[in-house]
Design a binder for these strands. Structure first.
Lengths: 212, 212
DNA sequence: TAGATTGTTAATCGATTAACAATC
DNA sequence: TAGATTGTTAATCGATTAACAATC
């Protein structure tokens, strides 16, 4: 699919390309040039062409890119035709909101199980999934082989839980805790979401002069 | 406070420094060298010294940095002693989870109002704040002068709502929608949280060979 | 004083932008 | 064919790392 290993900077732009192309497609666009797309997205045409050329030659000289075709290619690159089974650990406020709010199917995943330690939550439904005790995780993983896990748990339990999940074969984490999974598991795939840090950055920008 | 304008790359590392130094302080550390901190955080000592020197000379040759002092300095840089009034727009799953989950006071903010359009939610309490109708936002802003807003609303209402808030004096947004506020308001401060994009990146990494 | 470690300058690396030949 | 726009190479820019003199 791709020409060698792709830099994080490029990968982080792919979901946004995918979204924009979806909107263009809905808006009836059939073709678009890198120049026009750059204008709409606030990037340079050069960067767009460089980015796409990491993965192949999706355009045509003198014409530009076919919107539907390009979007579909990027979707494939992102692995969105897959439905990787995923578990949610922690069904507190944040975990339940994630479960309800995120369209997993459109992002290459399927949410197949939810786990918690809190007896008051266990047995209740979140969406159409019944929250199970974390003690069931071993058995569940053996049967369902989840590839990925969402961590919406307190920091102090994150080490134990992630160790356990990795030993059960989970290879990727969407990590909402401040625990650094990669420190003891350098080969695991981790996408961190540090909401607190994000708000802290907003505080900085509100109180100081910021670039861009 | 700082020596000129600081690059986004540096700013994005500040909250993590602040967190680590907090943990060190709790763990009884009095001093730490850039080398030791680098080891713990998975950075280079050089980068740490460069980062800190954007803001001043916080260390002492031959000694290193005083943990408590350094943390306090970074806290000030981040503006965490302030309590900027902030409103939440959208009290659905995600909005309510954010309101409950985030420690605003530790991040330089105070949540002072919550707004929604849904009649079934208006009048209910989220934490100790009563959800108001979005129609009240004008009056509320005049009285309370919120500096920042959290957008947890559908994309198609984001343009109207952000225009309105900006006209009411809101200068900064913690934006959970995929609407690009800066496109029509280039001078506004925006910190985007694109949860869907983040999960999509995890899909890519799970299905392809990734760096780091 | 000697050892340690900073603050800062210089070198390197990687990412973005510009330029242009290839080609539809 | 002429015009447009890509794919790709070269130039620039910015961020990270290395080196070292200053100094506690």
């Amino acid at each position: 699919m791709s020409k060698g290993i792709i830099s994080k900077s490029v990968i982080r732009r792919l979901p946004r390309y995918y979204r924009f192309l979806g909107e263009l497609e809905e808006g009836g666009y059939v073709r678009i040039s890198s120049r026009e797309l750059a204008e709409k997205m606030g990037l340079t045409a050069s960067q767009i062409r460089q980015d796409f050329n990491c993965f192949g030659e999706f355009g045509q000289q003198g014409y530009g890119y076919n919107v539907r075709e390009l979007r579909s290619q990027i979707g494939n690159i992102l692995g969105l035709e897959k439905k990787n089974p995923m578990v949610l650990i922690g069904a507190g406020n944040l975990g339940r909101a994630i479960a309800a709010h995120i369209n997993f199917a459109d992002r290459g995943f399927e949410l197949v199980g939810i786990f918690d330690v809190n007896e008051e939550i266990i047995g209740k439904n979140v969406g159409n999934i019944t929250v199970q005790s974390i003690d069931e995780i071993d058995k569940f993983c053996t049967e369902n082989k989840p590839a990925a896990a969402i961590l919406c748990i307190p920091k102090n339990s994150a080490e134990k839980v992630s160790d356990k999940l990795i030993s059960c074969g989970v290879r990727a984490f969407w990590n909402f805790t401040h625990y650094d999974i990669r420190f003891s598991h350098p080969d695991v795939i981790v996408e961190n979401v540090h909401l607190g840090d994000s708000l802290t950055i907003l505080s900085y920008c509100l109180n100081s002069v910021c670039e861009k």
